[in-house]
């Protein structure tokens, strides 16, 4: 599978900015070497009023997957590879209000609408929230609590902790649960526990590690490193192992090679 991803941020003034992200993927069969599918999708398109460094009150609106969890990723999301349950909120048109006291507390509240007009208006509404609180513990720890719910009775709740120590190493723990139609039906229950680590910058490189445990479905582990050629260019390699816990009981090694340019 080959994938290209682009992110763009444009600042008209310090308090008015546009942020967009999109990706394009090509799937190639290992056996036949033929292209099986292609897709090009927009991930995010937002206008933000307010600046993260300067403003206590900010509003952003646009289209994307509203953030409600810490989602500290050390490797790209492979939801489309093994049909992993995607713990992100659905793609909606949304508006988010953020209060940031610029000291230790950030509170976000989001209201969104599913753009699919085939669904009734009542079922298209989405609400999400996230609270992030920073402690001085261990030289900087962030506690993130959030959740979302929509009219289609999808629910999710997340708790996460991220520590960034004095030399810049990042260690994160996240616990997220989703519930669909029936919150107590075991089949509707999905849970992911993630532990991730990103080492400090030394010799232009950083080591990384991530472990995901999706309850009774799949376990993923990955080790890797990212190397910075300069402030604008980097490359990254992650090698990992995936073991499925469902009826298929498959397991795979995987590798990811990434190159990035920042302008």
């Amino acid at each position: 599978m080959y994938r290209a991803q682009g992110n763009i941020s444009l600042f008209v003034t310090p308090w008015l900015s546009y942020s967009g992200a999109a990706h394009s993927s090509v799937f190639v069969s290992r056996e036949t070497k033929q292209t099986t599918s292609r897709e090009t999708l927009q991930d995010r398109s937002l206008i933000q009023i307010g600046n993260n460094a300067l403003s206590r009150h900010r509003v952003s609106f646009g289209r994307g997957y509203p953030a409600y969890r810490i989602n500290h990723q050390m490797r790209e999301n492979f939801g489309y590879i093994w049909n992993l349950n995607n713990f992100d909120a659905p793609m909606v048109n949304f508006a988010t209000y953020t209060y940031d006291n610029q000291l230790d507390l950030t509170v976000q509240a989001t209201y969104g609408i599913n753009p699919d007009r085939k669904i009734s208006i009542a079922r298209r509404a989405l609400g999400a929230g996230r609270i992030m609180y920073d402690l001085a513990a261990l030289e900087g720890t962030r506690i993130v609590v959030g959740g979302f719910g929509d009219g289609s009775l999808r629910r999710a709740a997340s708790f996460g902790m991220l520590n960034v120590n004095g030399v810049g190493a990042e260690t994160a723990f996240e616990f997220v649960r989703t519930f669909a139609t029936n919150p107590y039906d075991p089949k509707e229950f999905h849970q992911n526990i993630r532990l991730s680590y990103l080492g400090q910058l030394q010799d232009n490189s950083r080591y990384k590690f991530q472990y995901d445990d999706e309850f009774q479905f799949i376990r993923l582990v990955g080790f890797g490193a990212v190397y910075y050629f300069s402030n604008s260019a980097e490359t990254e390699f992650v090698l990992g192992y995936a073991k499925q816990e469902d009826v298929q009981k498959l397991s795979h090694f995987y590798g990811v090679l990434t190159a990035g340019v920042r302008l």
């Binding site: 682009g6 992110n7 941020s9 444009l10 310090p14 795979h252 090694f253 590798g255 990035g260 302008l263």
Partner: peptide, 17 residues
Amino acid sequence: MSGNHFFLCLFGLLTLA
């Protein structure tokens, strides 16, 4: 003062034995 920020990322995914 405005600034532009553009990041392009390319990666390939391989499954290995």
